[in-house]
């Protein structure tokens, strides 16, 4: 019947490979480094760059599961509150005499439980969107943290605990190693496993996924629970770096994290984006912040730059689409 054979298979082309947003991020990253180098002579040294990563990597742990959540087309704005609650409970237990290793495990358990509760609410009450659910739990978790510590600081952790945030293994910061392990695990999870495939499918069309027998509720639950767990990991490293904790710790982290994910090219409409993009965005924002900090650029200025970058990140796919969309 159909004599003409239609193939829409796109052959591999360097052009489309290099036109990916992730390469754009690499370019911006290089640009930022060049800019920083010309701004400050202290910027380009292995030691200072290595130490800089320690200051921004703590929240990067949450970026990893947030990529999954945003690919699902959902969002979780309670993560910063989970960090605070997990951190505060750990500190409180330790001051009450619980051994530190056990307190750390409980910290992880608390975070996981918080994430599980988020997921359960989202899955059970389908009429509530993830924004509404996590907005509520954001307030609740932070509230509980305040009840426990009553706006006080808690700390005086054992000396070895500071290793998490400040320690080195050889020349490499411990936090960087842990992050690299988690990042590799999440890259594999999203891009190489059936789980990741299902996450992408759900983000593109949740009804068709469900109609294909994908256990959509189970996957959502797992993803939100993972976010809770990773928020607790952040709590460990952040608390260690600061040496003490307060109920208002990590305020605003959720927006930083979401900004990194979006800058990483993950579409808030769901279904699109790569883990590596978000990881690049973590380093990009981190180095930008560090470099501008060196030359005393005010923090507000940095926010403006970040905002502009975000707009570009959101605009570029639209512009490309707009060109293709016309027939």
């Amino acid at each position: 019947m159909e004599q003409r054979i239609v193939t829409n298979r796109r052959p591999f082309s360097w052009k489309s490979f290099l036109l990916q947003w992730e390469w754009m991020l690499v370019l911006i990253f290089i640009g930022i480094n060049i800019m920083n180098m010309s701004l400050s002579e202290y910027y380009w040294s292995f030691d200072s760059l290595r130490d800089a990563t320690m200051t921004f990597l703590d929240k990067a742990f949450i970026v990893l599961p947030m990529v999954l959540i945003i690919i699902l087309g959902d969002i979780d704005i309670s993560v910063a509150s989970i960090v605070a609650l997990a951190s505060v409970i750990m500190a409180d237990l330790y001051t009450m005499g619980v051994p530190m290793p056990l307190a750390m495990l409980i910290c992880l358990a608390v975070g996981t439980l918080c994430g599980f509760v988020n997921g359960l609410l989202i899955v059970k009450f389908k009429e509530l969107s993830a924004v509404i659910v996590t907005l509520s739990t954001m307030i609740i978790y932070r509230g509980i943290a305040y009840i426990i510590l009553e706006d006080q600081a808690a700390g005086k952790f054992p000396d070895w605990f500071s290793f998490l945030g400040w320690g080195y293994v050889g020349p490499v910061p411990f936090i960087l190693i842990v992050f690299a392990v988690f990042a590799a695990a999440f890259i594999l999870l999203l891009h190489k496993t059936t789980f990741g495939r299902r996450v992408y499918a759900m983000g593109n069309n949740i009804t068709a996924s469900r109609f294909s027998g994908v256990q959509v509720d189970k996957i959502k639950l797992i993803v939100f629970t993972l976010a809770g767990f990773m928020a607790a990991v952040t709590a460990l490293f952040l608390t260690s770096r600061m040496g003490s904790t307060r109920p208002n710790v990590a305020t605003g982290y959720e927006l930083d994290v979401i900004a990194m994910v979006v800058l990483g090219g993950i579409s808030t409409a769901g279904g699109k984006g790569k883990m590596i993009g978000a990881i690049l965005a973590v380093f990009l924002i981190g180095f930008l912040r560090y470099g501008l900090g060196l030359v005393n650029v005010p923090a507000q200025m940095l926010l403006i730059i970040l905002g502009l970058l975000l707009i570009v990140a959101v605009m570029i796919p639209k512009i490309k689409l707009g060109k293709q969309g016309r027939i």
């Binding site: 495939r197 299902r198 992408y200 499918a201 593109n204 069309n205 009804t207 068709a208 996924s209 109609f211 294909s212 994908v214 279904g271």
Partner: peptide, 16 residues
Amino acid sequence: EEGLIMNASISENIVL
């Protein structure tokens, strides 16, 4: 709406 992930490939849809 219910049958296919429209912007995924044929093979991705088939194996889902």
